[in-house]
Simulated scan of single mutants.
Amino acid sequence: MKSPSRPAVQRNASPYLHGGEAAAVAQVLESGQYGHSDVTEAFEREVAAYLDVPEVVAVESGTAALHLALLAAGIGNGDEVVVPSLTFAASVQAIVAAGARPRFAEIDPDTLCVTGSSVLDALTPDTRAVMPVLYGGRAVDLTDVAPLLAGRGITVVEDAAQAFGSWHGDRKVGAFGASGTLTCFSFGPIKNLTCGQGGGIVPRTPEEADKARGLRMLGIRQSQADRIRSTTYSVDAFGLRYPMSALNAAIGRTQLAHFDQIEAKRPHLWRTYRDALAGIDGVALVDVDVERSVPFNCVVRVRGRDAVFADLQSRGIGVGVHYPPNHLQAAFAPWHRPLPVTEQTAAQIMSLPFHPEMTEQDVTFVVHALRQAVAR
C-alpha cells in the first residue's frame, strides 16, 4: 500500500500535460505575438472540427464564455435565467454580469443536474434563458421541454465547462446549435482539455459568432491582422476585453492533438472508482453516464459527510466539495428560493481525488481510506 502523502491523492484535481505544451508556448514567445493571433484562430478551427460544428469563438475563460453567450443571445436587464443552485459560482456571476437575474432550479440528486420537470417548475413570465450545468461531464437532456422553451422564446445556454468531449446521443456536446442551443466550454487549468486558462462558445449562427467576436474584443470587429495593416479600425458596439491569448491557444492545440488519451483515461479512472466503491454502506456514487461522458470528477454522496471529509483530509487525501449551493450565498440572497433537494444533497456530496495522473492503485488506496472513515 502506498503512502497517503503521495501527490496523486493529495490533490483533488490537477492539470495534465502531454509534454509538447512548453515547446508550443516557446514558439509563440519567439514570435512576439502573445495576444489573440493566428494561433488562437487555428485553435478555434481545430476545436470546431473536433466538435463537427461550423465555428467556435475562443475567449479568456469559461466565465467569459457564459457572459458573452448570454449577451450574444440578447439576455440582459430585467431578464431571468433558470440555473441550478448546485454549480460553481461562475455560472451565476455570468448571469448577474449580463444584467439578468438568476432563478435557481432544483436538481436530480442522482445526477446533480437539472431535469425537464425542474426547469418547468422554475419558469416564470420573465424567463428568457435556461442554463443547464453539465455537472461532472454528463449531458443534460431537455428535449422533452425543448418545444415549450422554444415556443416561449427561451434560449438554452449550456454551461458545459466540465463536459468537453462528452456525447449527447450521437453528437458531441456542443454540436446542437442548429437545435437552438448555445454551448459554453471552459479550458481552465484542471478541465478535460486545458489551455492553462480559456473558454469557448459554440454559436448557433454566423451572425451570433460575429456578435460574440465583437463583444470579446471591445466591440472591434476587425481582426488583429487587419488592424495591423490599417491606419484605423471601427468600434461598432459595446464590448469587453475577453480574447484568448496565443500563449493559451498554443497549450490548447497541443492538448487537443492528444485528447484521445484523455478520452480513454478519464472514463477508465471513473469505472475503476465505480467498481471499487460497490458495496460500501452509506456511500452512493453520483452517475455521470460514463458510456457517453468524459468524466470531469468522481462524486459520492456520503452519510456523515463532514466527519468523513475531515478524516480523509487529515490523512492527506485531497477530497473536496463541489459545490456549496449558490442560493444560500450572501451575494445571491436577493434571488433565494427554497430548494430542499439541493440543500439535502449538497450536505452529502464529496468529490474524490480524480485526475489523469492517478492509477488504479491510487483509487484502491482512496477507497480503502473512505471505507475506514465511513465505518468510524
Rank of each mutant, 00 (worst) to 15 (best):
197 Q>G: 10
87 T>H: 05
373 A>V: 05
257 A>N: 08
181 T>W: 06
376 R>P: 09
125 P>L: 02
145 V>S: 09
129 A>D: 05
222 Q>R: 11
204 R>H: 06
276 A>D: 07
209 A>N: 08
346 A>Y: 03
38 D>P: 01
106 E>G: 12
274 R>D: 14
214 G>N: 06
370 L>R: 04
88 F>M: 11
159 D>L: 06
90 A>L: 15
329 Q>P: 03
8 A>H: 08
29 L>F: 14
256 L>Y: 07
278 A>P: 00
230 S>T: 04
45 R>C: 14
7 P>S: 14
330 A>M: 09
37 S>D: 04
296 F>C: 09
26 A>M: 15
244 M>C: 02
351 S>D: 11
318 G>C: 06
135 Y>D: 14
95 I>V: 11
128 R>I: 02
355 H>A: 01
123 L>D: 11
323 Y>W: 13
48 A>D: 03
344 Q>T: 14
155 T>F: 06
152 R>S: 03
82 V>N: 00
101 R>M: 10
34 Y>G: 07
305 R>P: 05
128 R>G: 10
374 V>H: 10
299 V>E: 00
153 G>Y: 03
281 D>G: 11
273 Y>E: 01
210 D>F: 07
374 V>M: 10
177 G>Y: 02
273 Y>F: 03
137 G>M: 10
339 L>E: 07
137 G>Y: 10
10 Q>C: 14
230 S>L: 01
359 T>M: 06
98 A>P: 08
259 F>H: 12
258 H>T: 15
154 I>Q: 07
249 A>D: 07
293 S>D: 05
334 P>D: 13
354 F>R: 12
97 A>T: 08
359 T>N: 07
285 L>S: 07
160 A>W: 01
49 A>F: 08
344 Q>V: 08
110 D>Y: 10
96 V>M: 09
309 F>A: 06
111 T>L: 05
84 P>F: 04
175 A>F: 10
276 A>T: 10
60 E>A: 11
55 E>K: 12
177 G>Q: 04
366 V>L: 02
286 V>R: 11
138 R>G: 15
59 V>T: 07
225 A>D: 08
94 A>S: 13
253 R>K: 03
224 Q>P: 07
225 A>N: 08
250 A>K: 02
140 V>A: 14
14 S>P: 02
350 M>H: 10
50 Y>N: 01
274 R>K: 15
229 R>K: 12
279 G>C: 00
67 H>M: 06
112 L>Q: 02
331 A>E: 12
112 L>T: 03
372 Q>A: 09
346 A>V: 14
148 L>H: 15
255 Q>N: 07
120 L>V: 00
147 P>Q: 00
21 E>H: 02
376 R>G: 12
48 A>K: 02
170 D>T: 10
165 G>W: 11
206 P>M: 05
25 V>Q: 01
26 A>E: 13
189 P>I: 13
256 L>Q: 09
165 G>L: 12
65 A>D: 00
324 P>E: 03
47 V>C: 06
44 E>S: 05
107 I>H: 01
54 P>S: 02
229 R>L: 12
347 A>E: 11
3 S>I: 12
239 G>D: 04
